[in-house]
Design a protein around this nucleic acid. Structure first.
Lengths: 225, 225
DNA sequence: ATTTAATTCAAACGACTGTTTGAAACAGGC
DNA sequence: GCCTGTTTCAAACAGTCGTTTGAATTAAAT
C-alpha cells in the first residue's frame, strides 16, 4: 500500500497550519515539512496551492452545507403550513458549522479556517467560497423572509450581513474570548455557543426598525456647483 | 523643500493598497511603484514593513479612538446620575469609526482595512491592535454593563464579541451587500449603516437569555418549554 | 561658499516563494 | 521473471520578498 495516505496527510496538515496562520502565511514547504512528505506530492495530488486550499475547505464545508440544507428542509416539512420559527432557521444554519469544532477529528482548527475565509480579499478564493455557499444563501434567505413577515427585504439583507459577521468572528476568534475576558470559552461546549449566537442574532433580526434621524440629508442629491 | 511629502505619499498609497488586497498580499515594491518613490524610502522613514503597517493603522485609528472616548465621556456627563442608554453607548462606538468611510480624504479604504485587521492571524499586528484598543475596550465594557443591568457578565462578554464581529464584517465587506443583494450600500450614507447596526446589536444585547437545552450537561437550569 | 545634516537613489543581498522536471521506487497483472 | 502505470524523490527553475548598503543629491546652518 506504500504511502497511500499521502494525500490525506497533506490535507490534514494543511488544514491545521492554514487555520493557525492563514493561507498566505503558510508555504507549501511548511506543510510538507510538517506532514513529512515530498514537496512535489502537493502538485501531484492537487495541482497547485490554490487547488489545495480549495480542497481543504471543500472537504469539510460541503458536508456541513448539505446538513444545513437537509435540516432546513426537514424543519420545513415538520412545520407544515405553519411558518418556520426564526430560531429554528438559525439553528439549522449554525449548528452543523459549530459542531465540527467539537469533533475531535477536525478539532477547533477548521472553524477558525472558515471564519478566516470570510475576511479574505483573495478574489479567486472568495468566488470559490461563494459558489460553495450559493444554495445555502438562497435557501436561508427565503427562510429568513418567511420567518420575518413585514421586515423590508433591504433590512433583512443588512441583518443577514450582521449575523454573518457575528458568526464568522465567533468561529475565527473563539479562543480570544477566553483569553481576554476570562470567560470559559470551552470549545467542546458548542451547544452554549450556538445558543448564545441564536439568542443574539434572533433578537437582532426582530429588532424594531428605528426611523432615520430627522436632520439626515434626504434622498435627494444635493446639487453641487 | 524637496520631496518632504514622501512619507505621506507612502502612507496614503499603502493604506489604499492594503485595504484593497490585505497586508501580506501587497509588497513594498507595489507600494513604492504606485507612490512613485524609492524603495529604500520606506525603510528610511518607517524602519520596516511591519512598522509601516502600524503607522498606517495608527494614523487614523488613534483619532477615532480618542473621539470614541470623548463622546462616551460627554454622554456620561450629560446623563448625570441616570444610567446611559445602550443605544447611546453603541453610537459612541460605531459613529466615529464609520464616519471615516464618508470622509473623502480617507474614503472607504480605511474602513475595510480596520475590518480586515480583526481577522488577521499575525501575532504582532494583533498585539499592536489590542494595545491601541485597550482603553476603548475597558471603558465600553463598563458602559455596557451599566446599560445592561442584570445581564450576567459572561453573557455580556459573548454579546460584545458578536457585536464586534458584526461591526468588523460590515466595515470589511460593505461593498459585498450591494453586489450580491442589489441593496444600495452607498458608503456615503453612513448614517443609515450606523442606525441599522445599532438597531441590530442593541436588540441582540437585550435579548432574553434562553435556558440551556434539557439534555445538556447539567449546570443550573430553569425549566421552560 | 563651505560645512553639516537630511533625504533620495540604484544596486545588490540572502532567503523564500510556487512550480517543474526527470529519474528512481513502488504497485499489481501477467 | 517482465511490463505498465502510479507514486515518490532530490534538484533545480524563475521570480519575488523585505532589507541593507554606500554613494549621490538636496536642504539648512554656519
Amino acid at each position: 500500500m506504500a504511502k497511500r495516505d499521502t494525500k490525506s496527510r497533506i490535507l490534514d496538515t494543511a488544514e491545521r497550519l492554514f487555520a493557525r496562520s492563514g493561507f498566505d502565511a503558510v508555504s507549501l514547504r511548511n506543510i510538507i515539512a510538517a506532514a513529512k512528505v515530498n514537496l512535489a506530492a502537493v502538485h501531484y495530488h492537487f495541482g497547485s496551492k490554490q487547488a489545495l486550499v480549495h480542497a481543504v475547505i471543500a472537504r469539510r464545508l460541503r458536508p456541513i452545507n448539505e446538513e444545513r440544507l437537509a435540516k432546513l428542509a426537514e424543519a420545513r416539512a415538520k412545520a407544515g403550513r405553519r411558518p418556520l420559527q426564526l430560531e429554528h432557521v438559525l439553528d439549522c444554519l449554525f449548528r452543523p458549522l459549530f459542531r465540527v469544532q467539537a469533533d475531535p477529528k477536525a478539532g477547533p482548527t477548521f472553524g477558525r479556517l472558515v471564519g478566516r475565509v470570510m475576511g479574505e480579499r483573495n478574489v479567486g478564493l472568495h468566488k470559490f467560497m461563494m459558489s460553495e455557499l450559493a444554495e445555502v444563501i438562497i435557501q436561508f434567505r427565503t427562510a429568513f423572509e418567511a420567518a420575518l413577515p413585514g421586515l423590508p427585504r433591504e433590512e433583512a439583507d443588512w441583518r443577514s450581513h450582521f449575523m454573518a459577521g457575528a458568526m464568522a468572528h465567533t468561529l475565527c476568534n473563539a479562543d480570544l474570548l477566553a483569553r481576554f475576558t476570562g470567560t470559559d470559552a470551552d470549545a467542546s461546549d458548542y451547544e452554549s455557543t450556538v445558543r448564545r449566537l441564536i439568542d443574539f442574532t434572533a433578537a437582532g433580526f426582530r429588532a424594531r426598525v428605528s426611523p432615520p434621524p430627522k436632520n439626515a440629508r434626504a434622498k435627494r442629491k444635493p446639487k453641487r456647483t
